[in-house]
Amino acid sequence: MSTFTRSDLTFNSGDDSCAAWFYRPDTTGPAPGVVMAHGFTAVRDQRLDAYAEAFAAAGIAVLLFDYRHFGASAGEPRQLLSVKHQLQDWDAAVATLRQQPGIDPERIGLWGTSFGGAHVQAVAARDHRIAAVVAQIPFCWAEKPQQKVPLQKTLGLLYAALKDSLRGALGLSPHYIQAIGDPDDDAAMTSPGAAAGIASITPADSGWRNRVAARFVFQLASYKPGKQAGNIRCPIHYTIAERDAFISPATIREAAALAPNAEIASYDCGHFGVYVEPLFSEVARDETAFLLQHLTPQRA
């Protein structure tokens, strides 16, 4: 096990800056590195630091960042989810890690979870210098909701998205909706136990805010990063939560079947179960082993 240090780091993306934590292991020679980011509306302090510490202790440098418009990163308006902007943030973060002293630019991996797991597939499909990818409980493409959604709630969500899009076009402040909640909540993403699940990974002083600009809804139908998995040349590790009520395990398996060099690790839990014990240590161990296998100097 390696000791490591964590420092604050900022990098530019578009017209704004992203806030990041940089974990540097105390190792000799150029170290491999991993870029990490969270999923839908979430921020880095929601258990991603625990994964970063596990990877850094194994000798892997980590750049863990918040997307623009979220957490400690810049960007106005707040809580604006833009797939285009977030993919730009990933590209900027990868470029930043490659430029850090003591980092091997040819041994850079990606780690993304949930909606971040979508982005790592899209980035790796076009950046063939990426050496390894972990896509944890990743969004691959939209499909029929796994739980029945009342028509009134669906129409309400579409109305909110339309209203927010119009406000954005007029240069007005966003129309926000609750981001995550239980089925009875008027939230963008709902499932039984979701409120307790998000609470289980959110520290009291977290920068997370449970709201999002409603216009994001119109991006989901056309964003299908799992369909690009066939263009991912490097090894990719898919982490699946078999009882995930947000993301269908079937879509993840279909994406993995497209990737030329994919492996799957399956866990008997819901969407938030991979972040906390009793499964977190096992998940982190398996993902660390995968990254070490494919980011070693011999492999590179």
Rank of each mutant, 00 (worst) to 15 (best):
residue 86 Q to A: 13
residue 86 Q to W: 09
residue 87 L to R: 08
residue 89 D to Y: 05
residue 90 W to P: 01
residue 91 D to A: 15
residue 94 V to P: 07
residue 96 T to G: 02
residue 99 Q to N: 11
residue 100 Q to L: 14
residue 100 Q to D: 04
residue 101 P to H: 10
residue 103 I to N: 05
residue 105 P to D: 15
residue 105 P to R: 09
residue 108 I to Y: 09
residue 108 I to G: 11
residue 109 G to D: 02
residue 111 W to P: 00
residue 111 W to F: 15
residue 112 G to Q: 04
residue 112 G to I: 06
residue 114 S to Y: 06
residue 115 F to V: 00
residue 115 F to E: 00
residue 116 G to T: 02
residue 117 G to I: 05
residue 117 G to T: 01
residue 120 V to K: 05
residue 122 A to K: 01
residue 122 A to Y: 06
residue 123 V to G: 06
residue 123 V to I: 15
residue 125 A to Y: 08
residue 126 R to L: 13
residue 128 H to T: 11
residue 130 I to Q: 03
residue 138 P to N: 00
residue 138 P to E: 04
residue 139 F to C: 03
residue 140 C to G: 03
residue 140 C to Q: 00
residue 140 C to H: 01
residue 141 W to H: 04
residue 143 E to M: 14
residue 143 E to G: 15
residue 144 K to G: 07
residue 147 Q to P: 07
residue 148 K to I: 15
residue 148 K to R: 15
residue 149 V to R: 07
residue 150 P to L: 12
residue 151 L to F: 14
residue 153 K to Y: 11
residue 154 T to K: 09
residue 154 T to C: 14
residue 155 L to D: 05
residue 155 L to F: 14
residue 156 G to W: 07
residue 156 G to I: 09
residue 158 L to Q: 03
residue 159 Y to N: 13
residue 161 A to H: 01
residue 162 L to F: 12
residue 172 L to R: 03
residue 174 P to A: 14
residue 175 H to M: 05
residue 177 I to C: 08
residue 180 I to F: 15
residue 180 I to Q: 12
residue 182 D to E: 12
residue 183 P to H: 09
residue 183 P to V: 08
residue 183 P to R: 09
residue 184 D to C: 08
residue 186 D to G: 08
residue 186 D to Y: 06
residue 186 D to S: 11
residue 187 A to H: 05
residue 188 A to M: 14
residue 189 M to R: 01
residue 191 S to H: 10
residue 191 S to N: 10
residue 193 G to Y: 03
residue 195 A to K: 11
residue 195 A to W: 04
residue 197 G to C: 11
residue 200 S to I: 00
residue 200 S to L: 09
residue 201 I to P: 12
residue 203 P to W: 09
residue 204 A to K: 04
residue 205 D to Q: 03
residue 205 D to A: 14
residue 210 N to Y: 06
residue 212 V to P: 02
residue 214 A to H: 00
residue 216 F to W: 10
residue 220 L to I: 12
residue 220 L to G: 04
residue 221 A to D: 03
residue 221 A to V: 07
residue 222 S to K: 09
